[in-house]
């Protein structure tokens, strides 16, 4: 049986593969950082839960301008306000859905929850441990991909 750490590594690797598959710009991931206790957000973030063989949550966060550029690259139109927030939720849905699809080919059945979009300065508590990876997207900027796994 695989350890939690090994499973976490597989999910994280798959998550980053999904980011590259869903967002059509060159992406460079920095070294993952482990953290405890809480996640801070300063602009926009989105949370998607996953259930099934594995339980956990994925958070994608970053500046509005970066998500706006991603939206424009993917769908050819500038986005702002409510439509930008909706796009951020859909982006997380696509990344998490793609992750779920890739994990199924590795023998893990996972389902995802509808995304929860979080706007503004906030702090998420109740986190035992998480892994954060900053991903630089060419011509767009940086977003953080956060994986919160549970036993």
């Amino acid at each position: 049986m695989e350890t939690l750490e090994a499973v976490t590594d597989i999910i994280l690797e798959t998550l980053l593969t999904s980011v590259r598959q869903v967002i059509p710009v060159p992406a460079a991931a920095q070294i993952p950082e482990v953290f405890q206790n809480s996640v801070a957000q300063s602009d926009i973030g989105v949370l998607v839960g996953f259930t099934g063989d594995l339980y956990g949550r994925i958070v994608i966060q970053g500046p509005s301008e970066v998500f706006g550029k991603i939206g424009e690259t993917m769908f050819g139109m500038p986005l702002e306000g409510e439509m930008l927030h909706s796009f951020v939720g859909e982006l997380a849905n696509m990344v998490a859905g793609n992750t779920s699809t890739l994990m199924s080919s590795k023998g893990q059945t996972i389902d995802i929850t509808p995304p929860t979009v979080m706007v503004g300065h906030l702090q998420l508590y109740g986190i035992e441990q998480g892994i954060s990876v900053t991903v630089h997207l060419e011509n767009a900027g940086e977003i953080n991909i956060i994986l919160l796994t549970q036993h």
């Binding site: 849905n93 998490a96 859905g97 779920s100 699809t101 199924s104 080919s105 059945t109 389902d111 995802i112």
Partner: peptide, 8 residues
Amino acid sequence: CSAMGQQL
């Protein structure tokens, strides 16, 4: 029309 593309 879904983000979930697994065979199942």
